[in-house]
């Protein structure tokens, strides 16, 4: 796991993209294993405002659907259309090509409430909870 990545208790990650105004969001390796083979990702509309913890995307496996909650409040800047044709990217490269959307945080202080890598690993080792069914 590269540094400076931040995590939620619902297993999303957030990492700065090209500027402090633009952050990529995806799901953790633990989450992609729990979800099993992703068959479809419902991406948010670019330009949409999402509150912190609001449902921003949906990931479908064969037998389940999972809500992806935005780690911070903000505006959706871009979405990863590569997932439309190859949703398996989310399983194969959850921290890289499997990113889901890019967000412009409306309040950077919200970042402080997320876990760093160490805290997330600690959270997982303590039982960490399973991703929530959507």
């Amino acid at each position: 796991m590269p540094p400076a990545r931040r995590y939620t208790k619902t297993h999303e990650w957030l990492v700065q993209s090209e500027s402090p105004e633009a952050w990529n969001v995806g799901i953790s390796d633990f989450a992609q294993q729990e979800v099993t083979d992703v068959v479809f990702v419902e991406l948010p509309k670019v330009g949409r405002q999402v509150p912190r913890g609001g449902e921003a995307a949906i990931i479908e496996s064969v037998k389940a659907a999972f809500s992806i909650y935005s780690p911070v409040g903000g505006t959706i800047l871009a979405v990863n259309h590569a997932l439309d044709g190859d949703p398996g990217l989310l399983n194969r490269d959850p921290y890289g090509q499997g990113w889901i959307f890019r967000i412009q945080p409306s309040d950077l202080s919200e970042l402080d409430q997320l876990m760093d890598e160490h805290a997330y690993e600690q959270f997982l080792s303590e039982g960490g909870g399973h991703p929530e069914h959507g």
Binding site: V39, E60, V62, K63, A64, A65, G134
Partner: peptide, 13 residues
């Protein structure tokens, strides 16, 4: 197939 759209998985959604 595409069962994730359906009530037994998605419930109220």
């Amino acid at each position: 197939t595409l069962q994730a759209r359906e009530q037994h998985i998605r419930r109220e959604k």
